[in-house]
Each structure stands twice: as C-alpha cells, then as structure tokens.
Simulated scan of single mutants.
Amino acid sequence: MTGELSPQASPSEVGYEGALRPGTLDEFIGQFKVRSQMNLLLSAATMRGVAPDHILLAGPPGLGKTTLSMIVATELDKPLHQTSGPAIQHAGDLAAVLSALTPGEVLFVDEIHRMARSAEEMLYLAMEDFKVDIMVGKGAGATSVPLELAPFTLVGATTRAGLLPNPLRDRFGFTAHLEFYSEDELASVVRRAARLLNFDISEQGIEEIAGRSRGTPRIANRLLRRVRDYSLVHETPADTASVEAALTLYDVDKHGLDRLDREVLRAVVERFNGGPVGLSTLAVSVGEEAETIESVVEPFLVRAGLLTRTPRGRVATQLGWEHVGLHK
C-alpha cells in the first residue's frame, strides 16, 4: 500500500476538519448511547411539529460537541446560528442574537459556561418562555419592554459542566455526557477520514494512530494528517513503520503522550521524587501556565494511570515511574 494524494486537491481537502465532520447521526461514529437518546428526542419533536427541548453537550474537548450541534440542525432541517460564551459578555449581546433567530432555528453556544452572568440570567426566561425583557432608558425613567422570540432550540456545549449555575443547567431538557472513545472506535474514525481524503493507509497504520489518539477523534484526525504529510514527502507506504516514524517526529509516543506530557511527568518523578507537588510549583518547573497543566495535561495523565491528584498535590504512580524509565 502506498500513501498518496491526488494531483489536484479534492473538495475534501478544502477545510480539513469541516470535510471530515459527519453530517447525520447515522454517520457519527461512537457515543452510541448519546446518539440513541438524541435520535429519539429529535424524531419525537419532528413528529409533533415543535422545536425539541434545549440540549446540553458536556465533555472534554475534541469528542464531537460542535459536530453534534450541526447534526441537530441538519436532522431538523433548520438553520444553525453559532456563537460562543466568551463572545456574549453583555445581556445586549445575547438579546441581539436571540431576536435575530427564525422559528425553529438552532442556536449553538460553545463554552456556554463562560457567558457573562447578566446574559445567563436573560437566557433563563428566553429558554422557558421564548421572550426577554429589554431595559429602555436609564435611571428612574428606565422601563422594561418585553420582546417575544421565535421558538428555538438552544444547544450548549461545555467542557466544565460544573461551572454552569443550577438554574441554567436545569432548563436544558436533555444533557448528553460525551465519553472518551475506545481504540476500536478511533480506528473507525481514522478509517473513515482516510477514505474521505483518498489516503491509502494500512490497517496496522490505522491501529497505530488510534492507539496514540488519547481517546479523542480530533487528535486522531490530526495525527492522520501528519502521517499523510510524512508519507507524501518521504514517498513511503503508509504502513506501521512510516506511521511510527511520523509520530515519533512529532513527539507522540506509544501511549499518546506528547512533549509537554512527558515533561510534566518527568518533573514530578525526577525533580520532586514522585510528588506530592503543588500545581503552581509544577507549572513553574516546566515553564508552562498552571491552567494549561490542569486543563490539558493532567486529565490525560490521570486517566492513563500515570499521575494522581491528592489534597497535597500531584503524585506519580508506579506506571508513571516506569514510563520515564525509573523505579520507585
């Protein structure tokens, strides 16, 4: 088998991530329980001729929350309006978005937990009664003017569901918790992406990518892209050897750890004798922001059984010691 690209870029080459997004629930790989629940919700709403309940998609980055929001609009045959929590910093920003929605439209708010509090409070009434109150004027002469909204479906996505206030979380009719993917599911993701990109890769190469993708489809697609580049430039078959060579070049090891992951793990083991070590101290020791360590690096190291979090700080496990080639 050889890794090759067509002489001219196909439509799938334009907008790499967008080209690989599944368009329907049937095309979506993995998350079987969530897909079944959403299929029932959307089908029932379509049969009744009403907008479905608001949907909250919760889970780590890269598991398909944005893709599922697009699928909701496609399945309902309604337009999709996309925005994000950080972009809505005032109640007026949200009022402008809501007032522009057409009947049945799907509003997708990414990172919804980062909305301004004033906008969240306005959203409560909009989600329940499809109306908002707009304040006109200032001071003693200010008046509240009710504004009726077209029925819509809000799809909120969050990586930090615990940061959502209870009144907002309770107004979602359905909450989907997305799980990390198994290696078999990731292999299916890579296989589908390779087919769409007309990239010929061996089954062993597919499995190698799946095993290093940290349970995340977005990472699997990104690694496939790097392997494709390597195969093209070096004019080698996309087999196990070239996949390993490509991923080694990009500092992705057998367990999916990248350079920063290994630096953090090695710092805990070698500089702090396995821990415990505090987050801020650990961040300074590797020259990285504490938020990056906590939100990007730690979740995978903990899930892989290489690191644990204790009240006193981070502690390397026996597997963590072995991964850096040392023993307790």
Results as ranks from 00 to 15, higher is better:
residue 34 V to E: 15
residue 45 A to F: 02
residue 32 F to D: 09
residue 86 P to H: 13
residue 48 R to Q: 08
residue 75 E to Q: 14
residue 56 L to K: 15
residue 80 L to E: 11
residue 40 L to C: 06
residue 31 Q to Y: 15
residue 49 G to M: 05
residue 17 E to L: 11
residue 38 M to C: 08
residue 6 S to I: 13
residue 70 M to C: 15
residue 46 T to W: 02
residue 64 G to R: 13
residue 72 V to I: 14
residue 85 G to S: 06
residue 57 L to E: 01
residue 89 Q to V: 08
residue 51 A to N: 11
residue 9 A to S: 10
residue 22 P to W: 05
residue 86 P to R: 12
residue 45 A to K: 03
residue 77 D to A: 05
residue 6 S to A: 14
residue 77 D to T: 15
residue 7 P to V: 15
residue 41 L to R: 02
residue 20 L to E: 08
residue 80 L to T: 01
residue 10 S to K: 08
residue 84 S to Y: 04
residue 6 S to T: 15
residue 84 S to C: 14
residue 85 G to M: 15
residue 10 S to F: 03
residue 84 S to I: 06
residue 12 S to E: 12
residue 55 I to T: 10
residue 27 E to C: 01
residue 21 R to K: 03
residue 11 P to H: 04
residue 29 I to P: 10
residue 64 G to W: 03
residue 73 A to R: 12
residue 42 L to W: 13
residue 88 I to P: 01
residue 9 A to G: 07
residue 89 Q to R: 08
residue 24 T to L: 03
residue 43 S to F: 02
residue 41 L to A: 12
residue 71 I to H: 00
residue 47 M to G: 03
residue 75 E to S: 03
residue 53 D to W: 07
residue 15 G to P: 10
residue 48 R to Y: 09
residue 88 I to W: 07
residue 40 L to I: 15
residue 24 T to V: 06
residue 25 L to N: 03
residue 34 V to N: 13
